[in-house]
Amino acid sequence: MNEVIQNILTRRSVRTYQEKQISDDDLNAILEAAKFAPSGMGKQSWHFTAVQNKEIMDKLVSAVKEALQSSEVEQLKKMGNNPAFNPFYHAPTIILTAYDRNAQTGVSDCAVALQNMFLAAHSLNIGSCWIHILAITGNDPKVRSILTELGIPEDYDLSGTAALGYNSKEAPKAAPRKEGTVTIIK
């Protein structure tokens, strides 16, 4: 089988990570793959912020949990009140994707860039998981303050986050694919 298709078919979301940090070379390769994702009208409306500092991640986790505690959605409130909850699954590296809120295709641009990150990570034997929590909590004042400190422009909104690290367990099996999701018209 073609190695690109094999990479796509074998990538899984990883939610348990070793403490070992990924190398700078691997991080740079993953970010480069993100920058080469297609984007609407070639605008590249994204901004990527890689965080490997545990203190900063802990600060961000605390702010996210506090924001969730005031959510009107009961499931989110429970997550925020759970002392063991870490939205990034304790990954040693996270990459925040943000987009210019004036860009018509910003969310889609970030989604494609994230997929490139995940596929690049998998090809390097690095586990990954798409985290959506900052798209939900990114406008909370405390969370936004941290994002601004991290260099994310004020006029950018958060899309997904890539959690990255070495898997501490065997990769999960693929969920069965839903039937009836493809139509071919000739």
Rank of each mutant, 00 (worst) to 15 (best):
A29L: 10
I30M: 04
A34G: 08
A34P: 04
K35H: 10
K35D: 02
F36C: 09
A37Q: 06
S39I: 02
G40T: 02
K43C: 08
K43D: 05
Q44Y: 12
S45T: 10
W46H: 01
F48T: 00
T49M: 04
A50V: 11
Q52I: 11
Q52T: 15
N53W: 08
N53K: 13
K54H: 10
I56R: 11
D58K: 14
D58S: 08
K59F: 03
L60R: 13
V61I: 13
V61E: 03
E66I: 05
L68S: 03
Q69N: 15
E72L: 11
E72T: 13
E74R: 02
E74H: 12
E74D: 13
Q75K: 14
Q75F: 13
Q75N: 13
L76W: 15
K77G: 04
K78M: 10
M79G: 02
G80I: 05
N81S: 10
N82R: 07
P83T: 10
F85H: 14
N86D: 15
H90C: 11
P92E: 13
I94C: 08
I94R: 02
I95M: 07
L96S: 04
Y99S: 08
D100W: 02
D100M: 00
N102F: 10
N102Q: 15
N102T: 12
A103C: 15
A103K: 07
T105F: 14
T105R: 03
G106Y: 00
G106L: 03
V107T: 10
S108N: 14
D109R: 03
V112F: 10
A113Y: 00
L114F: 09
Q115F: 03
M117T: 00
L119H: 05
H122I: 09
N125K: 15
G127E: 07
G127Q: 06
C129R: 10
W130T: 02
W130A: 05
I133R: 00
A135R: 11
T137Y: 04
T137H: 03
G138I: 06
D140Q: 13
I146W: 14
L147H: 05
T148E: 09
I152C: 09
P153N: 09
P153Y: 07
P153S: 09
E154K: 15
L158K: 03
L158M: 15
S159T: 02
S159W: 01
G160V: 02
T161Q: 11
A163R: 04
A163D: 08
A163I: 04
A163T: 06
